[in-house]
């Protein structure tokens, strides 16, 4: 038993540099996805909410366009989205394969669509009376969003962000198909293609730990922000 354990530790040490490199690639893809979720997902989700039916700022054509974008992206099987975006990425970035930054393009697109939907749902949970109060105080739409909606929805927005990030981890694992690397790709290459089962399980455990950390951080922060 101790012999087997020593053997396993030796193998993990041997593979460690490759594994850390893969984690770094996952980190790059997650970074761009999370950044896009915050910088674009939040505004798009807010716009979805503000333009929906029954709001003072209702705008049906705009709402339909954004809804269509979100639905189409989200209903795309992710692998096909990755492949379908190849020519576009090549145009914009110069290369579409073999690089985690190139692999981040589809991650960015799915991140915006996914988190926009979560943001819309969070805002929908705010009681109608809060909107009415903002309106009765003569708030502009900008003030409504920043001083009322985001204040009341903040813990729900954080929980949604943690859930979205966990999905990004899952999406990132298939980026190996375009040579994007990442810890998921590492697990597939060593475990599935080279039968190094122990190394594959080690990589999977790392992914699970990553997910647990995001979940824990999200819940902790949400709880701290929630004064309801």
């Amino acid at each position: 038993m101790t012999e087997a354990l020593r053997l396993y530790i030796d193998r993990v040490i041997e593979f460690m540099p490759r594994m850390l490199e893969s984690l770094g690639e996952t980190g790059i893809m997650l970074f761009f996805a999370m950044l896009a979720a915050i910088l674009a997902g939040i505004p798009v989700g807010t716009l979805l909410y503000l333009t929906s039916e029954g709001q003072p700022t209702e705008n049906r054509p705009l709402n339909r366009i954004i809804n269509a974008f979100v639905n189409i992206i989200r209903s795309f099987p992710f692998l096909l989205l990755v492949v379908a975006m190849q020519p576009f990425i090549r145009q914009v970035y110069g290369r579409a394969t073999g690089d985690p930054i190139a692999a981040s393009f589809p991650m960015v697109v799915i991140a915006i669509a996914l988190y926009a939907r979560f943001v819309e749902q969070s805002l929908n949970e705010i009681p109608r009376g809060i909107l009415e109060t903002a309106q009765s105080m003569g708030a502009t739409t900008w003030q409504l969003v920043w001083k009322f909606l985001y204040v009341e929805a903040r813990s729900s927005l954080v929980i949604g962000f943690a859930t979205a990030t966990i999905s990004f981890v899952s999406y990132s694992t298939i980026m190996g198909v375009v040579g994007g690397g990442g810890i998921g790709d590492f697990a597939i290459r060593y475990g599935y293609q080279r039968y190094e089962t122990d190394i594959m399980y080690t990589a999977i455990v790392l992914i699970i730990i990553l997910v647990e950390i995001f979940q824990w951080l999200g819940l902790k922060l949400a709880k701290k922000l929630d004064k309801r």
């Binding site: 009681p127 009376g129 809060i130 009415e132 109060t133 309106q135 009765s136 105080m137 003569g138 708030a139 502009t140 009322f148 204040v151 009341e152 903040r154 813990s155 922000l225 929630d226 004064k227 309801r228």
Partner: peptide, 19 residues
Amino acid sequence: RQAQKQIGMIFQQFNLLNN
């Protein structure tokens, strides 16, 4: 908005921001 800001209002459900 200018007209609304001159009028105060209170509500059945109070409508305070809980956060």
